[in-house]
Design a protein around this nucleic acid. Structure first.
Lengths: 138, 138
DNA sequence: TAAACTTACTTGCAATTTGCAAGTAAGTTT
DNA sequence: AAACTTACTTGCAAATTGCAAGTAAGTTTA
């Protein structure tokens, strides 16, 4: 019965991740939530990279399906949904931090602040705790 | 003059990475090279995920263009090219390790060996040094 | 030495995804 | 009530993906 059974290309952990968020946009949404506290469709759409409306809608649906975010109604404005990271989503922070380090090393035009990069290197745990604390305060 | 100037959606480090390897296949190739010492087209093609021939060819060209791998002729069999990771490619190891940790946590069917996951957690530097040493011995 | 085999792609094609921009329905503000 | 805002949806063309056959170059075998 294939109705609810998802096929995986392999059980390799790298492949699992790629099948979960291996596209040009998903991690940008996670970034916006983890780093900038964004939580609505309109906020994500305003990001500099300029995601298309249909792709944004699609990715939010996917990320919710993958258990990385949850979607709830905004009570003060019922046109809006509020998206929040699950623990599974928050657990992507170390991945993002390593990606930032890699990019800072290899992209001469990176907008990653030097102090931020140094902090990832020198106080990973402190920074992680700070980001998560800020996240929970939104 | 736009001939050699590449347009980036933004200078954000996450975006830089996604524009470099944000697809379903690129990191699988890097995995095969870092973890399994694969170095030829045929070896990559045999991976369990079953990449299409045209996509594999395309990704190898891209990874080379991005400076993550280099391609050289195999002198003992001139039909084959040998691909090797550059330092930029090797520097993706910490990203891969964090992805493995994340997946091990969130994929109940992961094929990542428990001892390997424990080693990532307990001796990151030792493991990194070991993988790189093995890499250079291929 | 020629035939058979292997290797790394290339090609043809259909399905799917992406990106642009206009459209739409529901909700809020004026 | 009209105007505006929000979150999508839609139409469409271009790009990408995946399947599988095809092709050229190189190697092995008889």
């Amino acid at each position: 019965m294939k109705l609810t059974q998802r096929e995986w290309r392999s059980n390799c952990p790298i492949n699992f991740a790629l099948e979960t968020f291996g596209d040009l946009w998903s991690l940008l949404i996670v970034r916006d939530m983890l780093m900038y506290g964004k939580s609505t469709y309109g906020e994500f759409q305003k990001s500099e990279e300029g995601i298309a409306t249909n792709v944004l809608a699609d990715r939010l649906v996917r990320l919710e399906r993958e258990g990385i975010i949850t979607k709830s109604l905004n009570e003060s404005d019922r046109r809006k949904a509020t998206f929040r990271l699950t623990q599974k989503g928050i657990d992507l922070l170390p991945v993002l931090l390593e990606i930032i380090l890699w990019s800072a090393q290899h992209n001469s035009k990176t907008s990653a602040p030097k102090e931020f990069v140094e902090q990832i290197r020198n106080d990973r745990d402190g920074l992680t705790a700070k980001i998560i604390k800020e996240l929970k305060s939104y």
